[in-house]
Amino acid sequence: MEESKRRHTREGFADALLELGERDPRVVVLDADLAKSTQTYRFKERFPERFFDCGVAEQNMMGTAAGLATTGKIVFVSTFAVFASGRAFDQVRNTICYSNLNVKICPSHGGITVGEDGSSHQSIEDIALMRVLPNMKVIVPADYYETREATKTAAYLEGPVYIRMGRVKAPSIFDEDFRFQFGKARVLREGKDISIFSCGLMTWEALQAAEMLEKVGIEAEVVHLSTVKPLDREGILRSVAKTDLVITAEEHSIIGGLGGALAELLAEEMPVRMRRIGVRNKFGTSGSSEELLEHFKLTSHHISKAAQELIGLKGTR
């Protein structure tokens, strides 16, 4: 894909914040000394009175966000995903989710493609951590357009929402006319042989994998599941009923994230063979984002390989 079609998801977030800030005076934004990285500085420049830098203190930021929400504000909070979900987990749990407050936690730097900063900054547990909390909704958008639209939608969903963005530019899958549907699985490519469920940056890899599979005569269905919670039960089961084989692909641990969520649903409702593409119970490491995707076996090639293995097992038990 040419460079011009790759854009930062956090740019979409910042564009949405400006639009929201313009039309709704209730929108306020908090950051923890990462406004330049997360792009919230653009909101700060336009609406300085409604932006609060909380310094390097994520726990207090989450509590402050909760307090602002009790006064009727729609509060967006940003930092890096590893801090939003991990560092301040108890605050998100007890002060935001338990009280079901309108705090939208929208971190950048989710996943392994954080790159050279290494493991301390690579968030590969956040989907699991946020998904387990009652009242929390979890969205992992694929590109600039989806992030922008999801952010605008999240502002008016009741209660807390977690929107996970990445560091690197994401290939554009959607376009200017994209309409986000919260809680809906989106079939991006139809197929009858195997279902590939993916979120975030990995949806691009899934689409590439489907192209590879087509060349060897396999029709893969690619289902983009940007809403990881609540899961679109009907949408998922519809696809799985057709293909009977499932691959999940996410820039996250295979434990507790999209793969975990699908495994929970399918084990109860429609047990089928599945493979989870993700980081396999390991910490990250420094490297370029491309190198890391390859190192942790997250690229389209690995998805395609796993699909072929699963299809080879069809009919066996």
Partner: peptide, 19 residues
């Protein structure tokens, strides 16, 4: 606002005061 996990209420009070 719900409290119980210590240390968190003051942050929430800050948010209320700002709001």
């Amino acid at each position: 606002i719900s409290t119980g996990s210590l240390g968190q209420g003051l942050a929430a009070a800050n948010g209320m005061a700002l709001g």
